[in-house]
Design a protein around this nucleic acid. Structure first.
Lengths: 151, 151
DNA sequence: GTTGCTGCAAACCCTTTGCATAGGA
DNA sequence: TCCTATGCAAAGGGTTTGCAGCAAC
């Protein structure tokens, strides 16, 4: 089932006059394995431990391309760095981020999506993308935070 | 009316064992004048042109304190740097950001707020803060973008 | 007088870039 | 062969930090 994705990637690159290199294939392969929220450095490091020699710079450059074609999504989850996530076969969603354990929980709320469109419509604004992050404590960490008087 | 804010600031600092310095007063004064979305560097630069000598480091450090006590809000509006906004006398709100002219439009939608709370409740998540950004084109820029075939 | 604060410059961290070489098309 | 991609290391840009002198309390 992933062949189609590689095929699309190849076609996109060809149309743009870009090359379908082995590094790009390796990075796409790695991204498709992921089901979590990762950063570029992490992906590069993981590839290195697997013996795949791809530079950080190429990882960044390739993730940009994959973002353009919608294979990955970029998310700002409260850290200094960008997070990426594999979007193949997935829909837009928003994130809950635990301030204690860093867990990320995904959710979709159709009503929120609808209201966003209405807000834009009423203001004559053309929405291109949107992102909603909710920061707080997950059910596992709530008691820990209370006990430690951390907030 | 601002006296109360300075008084609160002073009390907060005292309770924390921190000092109510002239630099901190100057920065708070500057922040209270603002009605827009600014970054730390911008604020420092503006103060310098007004002849107020406060270092960038102190601006960053003080904005952090002001954020803790709710006088300023931090927002990630699609740039590399953080944006701050004066929150005195204001409620939480979300942002529409124009990708063409960088204009920021604020909005509040009670239904969205309510649904966020429901999502958290249903997942046993304790919300501390949230931020929603919608990126796109404002009514002024929509025709410009269409004409120039920019997207 | 004690202790936290400031300014400065350097350090940091993530990300981007310039350049020489490698490798798709 | 032509031209883009890669790897490396250096540059970038916003933000943070270590430290010596300074100012609150």
């Amino acid at each position: 089932m992933n062949e189609a994705i590689f095929e699309n990637f190849k076609n996109y690159l060809r149309n743009e006059g870009l090359k379908y290199t082995s590094e790009r294939r390796l990075i796409l392969t790695e991204v498709l394995k992921r089901r979590d929220h990762f950063d570029a450095d992490e992906l590069a490091a993981e590839m290195r431990t697997e013996g795949l020699k791809v530079s950080r710079a190429t990882v960044y450059r390739t993730l940009d391309i994959l973002h353009e074609i919608g294979v990955v999504n970029k998310a700002t989850l409260g850290h200094k760095h960008q997070h990426y996530e594999n979007m193949v076969g997935r829909q837009h969603h928003d994130h809950l981020v635990c301030l204690h354990c860093d867990k990320v929980i995904e959710f979709v709320d159709e009503e929120i999506e609808k209201r966003q469109e209405e807000v834009c419509k009423s203001l004559g604004f053309e929405m291109k993308r949107h992102s909603l992050q909710i920061f707080g404590y997950c059910s596992h960490c709530i008691p820990l935070v209370k006990d430690n008087k951390i907030n």
